[in-house]
């Protein structure tokens, strides 16, 4: 058992913890937030894309 063996086990454990954290966080988000909010992102919101005639209206993302 040298440093490389220890590193291997550490890598397995660290990977496992990271994955667990992400899964736990995703589950928590699913529980705490409404699905329609999570799904609410919209494509094509950009100042460049706005119709010049409608320029200046609020609501764009900064």
């Amino acid at each position: 058992m040298d440093i490389w063996d220890i590193a291997s086990y550490a890598a397995w454990i660290a990977s496992g913890l990271i994955l667990l954290w992400m899964v736990a966080d995703a589950i928590k988000v699913n529980r705490d937030f409404d699905e329609s909010l999570l799904m609410s992102s919209q494509e094509g919101i950009d100042e460049l894309l706005e119709d010049p005639a409608a320029a200046g209206r609020p609501g764009r993302e900064g």
Partner: peptide, 13 residues
């Protein structure tokens, strides 16, 4: 688009 949308989340710019 024209209204403020507090309940809308997008990817961060």
């Amino acid at each position: 688009l024209g209204q403020a949308q507090p309940q809308r989340i997008n990817l961060l710019k």
